[in-house]
Design a protein around this nucleic acid. Structure first.
Length: 824
RNA sequence: GCCGGGAUGGCGGAACUGGCAGUCGCAGCGGACUUAAAAUCCGCGGCGGGGCAACCCGCGUGGGGGUUCGAAUCCCUCUCCCGGCACCA
């Protein structure tokens, strides 16, 4: 090979810098609303922790393949990036190192932005946003005011996780085994005033619309369905005996109402304290409540209860029913009160056994009758009602309806729905978040900040000590304001929003992040989101419930407030798996991280991207392998040398294919188009990038085998096809080699290759032949061979004949083009 | 406990609607080039057996059973692994 000495070494750093600079200078990936088919491809934006990790590389490589692929297909692609920039780590860094959270955050953004650029992702950087920017969060404050007007945001009391030593509320995620993640002291439940979003008002719609999310993975839909947790049943009122008031209990089994032998209420139930006030039982109830509060979340409690000494009346029989405070009843679900039916509920059964309460069977299953004296567990299945007065003999399902109807007729109950989902607590006693725009006036009470006064800016000159409590509370300039209504003395709200609020609507702000007049520019909004929403959303499965549910809720709120025309934010969702190394998720604490910068430096961005895409299908966990990375690097090196080697043999770009082809040319031509077909389907429909890459590798191997002999125009077609198919995966080296191959224009404008189906046609095919379902031979037959010809050819095969023997062929099954089975 | 996902060579993973199990890559082995190594290139490769060889036979997709001309794929059942939720009334 005379030319070999002149082949330049593949230097990823040089190639990648060259093309990144070109794309940037030409603003190749910037886009505005316009003509053509719009496509919105979005990856979950990163928290600016300081450095990107392999999970980011994987996530954004997947997104970039989709964005670049669809762009090459001629669609107009919105592919933005931004920063989920508020949050606790910034505040902790400030406390530990003295850097201001804003400074820390923006420094990190600068670092990570540079890293993302080095990876060559095709983002429209003119749309970059950071949620800690007042130009972003001012709109969130506006949405909040609108929600407040509609009762969708409210202030209410609730049980929250409270760390005594840090003097702050903790999110559920920050409570580890019942202890504070920061100081390790025991977390207690405390009743506090907090801000809430009324997500429960949308529970039904959030549940119902899950059925429309056909582009979502089934497991995410299922997780959300479980999280919303709808159950159908009834609320039943038990009037108190000898005093005013009543207890309302929720049940899914109104058919067991006649089996009630007690009623139990949660330790935090308002009546719990009231019923025992002034009696010697008060201390016992208090102790039970305290133990329930302190117990770790994951341990199984022994059923305990304290009789209140008070009674209520059965709503249908009028019998006296004792009331207990029970440790297994939770205040946060249903009504915080449960009717005790020990024969037909396992928890009630255990409770009754522990406290020696009567067990009454009112549902009799088929077969052996239940006997309370010998039962070892509750019967929770269906059966026929017994000892239930007028309802005796009814099957449970019908019984449920009839009992509810009877209760409703007496005003003693009603059919009811309850959800596991609870309203979203959005206030945090933290500094680094968006201020909640309300003030508290000594005269007027709670007053929303007028829209014209927005944004309520987060002050920068705040001292962060880590001592606990909201840092904003000590900032007189921020806190002390005149009441917008009466001009009197007022105090500003010092809580800030949960950062999940910012991430609930950022996808919509990308349509016009530059717009300071409205949250969303009409034209850009209609074009990019319209009524479709984000066409392809990609992110980690860990957000299956939290972020993805909040964003769905927020979208519906924005719709009802008239800001967007969407019912659902994300049409198609791809949840990528974790990056695993040495059997554990790659993480700093496990010490098994691979630094993306190191990879880029040593192998280049294209190799890093290619490995993340090749090593596993996107939704599965990816097992990291250093040798696997080497393999990808070797492949790109091979490709590089191949293109440089054949470039002088190539017909000019666009040269017509020869009218007749020899066997070699026809085969390569066919394989080229077969590869186009496979890759287009894998990338465009199946989102299986690993098999797409494997297909291109095969074609590269096929080209290498015939590079010196094949027709130059067919070779040109094959080489150009390889580069175009690889452009979404390894954009830099593909762009460079496209130039090397003699194309004057960039590969970005080359379009996606089309499969010529006439090239796929074969004259003869190899057909596997089975005898009684076992493979016994292969025959070469013409594509249009008749059944008789095929049978004759099969029986002419020596091995086939040996297995058929003297036996007659009873039957044959021919799957055209696939196989032939002879049954003897 | 409930819900969901998964189990295929030494490893990551292919096999689209039931039709040649193991594409591609990694690791391995043999060879070429080289004083040598690296890099690169060529070849071999599920397991067991037969054959100088082309090839042939048996077994084989977590275990057991079934449906079918034919099962990694569908059905039943069991085991193990991963994830989510969890006294949810």
């Amino acid at each position: 090979m005379a030319g070999e000495a002149s082949i330049p070494r593949y230097d990823p750093a040089a190639v990648e810098t060259k093309w990144q600079e070109r794309w940037e200078r030409a603003r190749t990936y910037e886009v505005r609303a316009g003509d053509g088919e719009p496509v919105y491809v979005l990856e979950m934006f990163p928290y600016p922790s300081g450095r990107i990790h392999m999970g980011h590389v994987r996530n954004y490589s997947i997104g970039d393949v989709i964005a670049r692929f669809r762009r090459l297909r001629g669609e107009r692609v919105l592919h933005p990036i931004g920063w989920d920039a508020f949050g606790l780590p910034a505040e902790n860094a400030a406390i530990q190192h003295g850097a201001h959270p804003a400074r820390w955050t923006y420094d990190n953004i600068a670092n990570m932005r540079a890293q993302l650029r080095r990876l060559g992702f095709s983002y429209d950087w003119s749309r970059e946003l950071a949620t800690c920017d007042p130009r972003y969060y001012r709109w969130e404050q506006l949405f909040f005011l609108r929600m407040l007007e509609r009762g969708l945001a409210y202030k209410g009391r609730s049980q929250v996780n409270w760390c005594e030593s840090c003097a702050t509320v903790l999110a559920n995620e920050q409570v580890v085994d019942g202890r504070c993640w920061r100081c390790d002291s025991v977390v207690r439940l405390r009743e506090l005033e907090q801000w809430f979003f009324r997500i429960t008002a949308y529970a039904e719609e959030l549940l119902r619309d899950l059925d429309r999310l056909t582009g979502w993975p089934e497991r995410v839909v299922t997780m959300q369905r479980n999280w919303i947790g709808r159950s159908e049943g009834a609320e039943i009122r038990f009037p108190l005996d000898g005093r005013p008031g009543e207890i309302t209990a929720f049940t899914t089994r109104p058919d067991t109402l006649f089996g009630v032998t007690f009623v139990s209420i949660a330790p935090e139930h308002p009546l719990a304290r009231e019923l025992v006030a002034g009696t010697e039982r008060a201390a016992a109830v208090e102790a039970l409540a305290e133990r329930a509060r302190l117990s770790a979340r994951d341990e199984e409690l022994v059923k305990e209860g304290v009789p209140t000494g008070a009674f209520c009346r059965h709503p249908l029989t009028g019998e006296r029913v004792p009331i207990f405070v029970a440790n297994f009843v939770v205040m946060g679900y249903g009504t915080g009160a449960v009717m005790g039916v020990p024969a037909h509920d396992q928890r009630d059964f255990e409770f009754a056994r522990a406290l020696g309460l009567p067990i009454m069977v009112v549902i009799q299953p088929e077969g052996a009758p239940l006997d309370p004296a010998t039962m070892t567990e509750a019967w929770e299945g269906p059966g026929r009602m017994v000892r239930s007065g007028e309802f005796d003999g009814l099957p449970s399902e019908e019984g449920k309806r009839r009992v509810v109807a009877a209760l409703a007729a007496r005003g003693a109950g009603r059919a009811a729905m309850t959800y596991r989902l609870r309203d979203w607590g959005v206030s945090r006693q933290r500094y680094w978040g968006a201020p909640i725009p309300v003030v508290y006036c000594e005269g007027c009470g709670l007053v929303p900040v007028p829209e014209s006064d927005l944004p309520v800016l987060l002050p920068e000159d705040v001292v962060l000590t880590g001592a606990g409590g909201s840092p904003l509370a000590g900032h007189a300039g921020f806190v002390e304001v005149a009441c917008p209504r009466c001009r009197g003395r007022a105090r500003r709200e010092t809580d800030t929003f949960d950062t999940f609020v910012e991430s609930s609507w950022y996808f919509a702000r990308y349509v016009s992040p530059w717009d300071d007049g409205t949250p969303f520019d009409r034209r850009e909004l209609d074009y990019w989101l319209g009524t479709r929403g984000v066409d392809q959303y990609i992110g980690g499965i860990e957000h299956a419930v939290l972020h993805l549910l909040y964003a769905r809720f927020f979208t519906k709120v924005l719709r009802d407030l008239g800001y967007v025309a969407l019912d659902e934010p994300f049409r198609n969702l791809l949840t990528q798996g974790m990056v695993i190394k040495d059997g554990a998720k790659m993480s700093k604490s496990k010490g098994n991280v691979v630094d993306p910068d190191y990879l880029i430096e040593r192998y280049g961005a294209d190799t890093a991207r290619l490995f993340c895409l090749f090593a596993a299908p996107p939704e599965r966990d990816l097992d990291w392998s250093d040798q696997g990375v080497e393999g990808m690097s070797r492949f790109l090196g091979r490709l590089w040398r191949l293109v440089w080697t054949v470039r002088d043999r190539l017909a000019p770009p666009g040269a017509p294919l020869p009218g007749t082809m020899d066997e070699t040319a026809r085969t390569l031509h066919r394989r080229t188009h077969e590869t186009i077909q496979r890759v287009t389907e894998d990338v465009g429909e199946r989102l299986r990038f690993n098999t797409a890459i494997a297909a291109v590798m095969e074609l590269v191997g096929a080209i290498a085998d015939v590079q010196d002999d094949v027709d130059p125009a067919v070779l040109r077609e094959a080489v150009d096809t390889v580069l175009r198919l690889l452009a979404p995966f390894v954009p830099h080296v593909a762009a460079e080699l496209w130039e090397v191959a003699g194309h004057p224009d960039w590969i970005d404008r080359a379009g996606w290759p089309a499969c010529d189906t006439s090239a796929l046609v074969r004259e003869r095919i190899e057909l596997p032949v089975q005898v009684n379902g076992k493979l016994r031979g292969r025959i070469l037959v013409a594509v249009d061979a008749s059944v008789d010809d095929i049978l004759a050819a099969a029986l002419a095969d020596e091995n086939v004949r040996a297995h058929v023997g003297e036996r007659p062929v009873r039957k044959h099954v021919l799957v055209p083009g696939r196989m032939l089975n002879l049954v003897v």
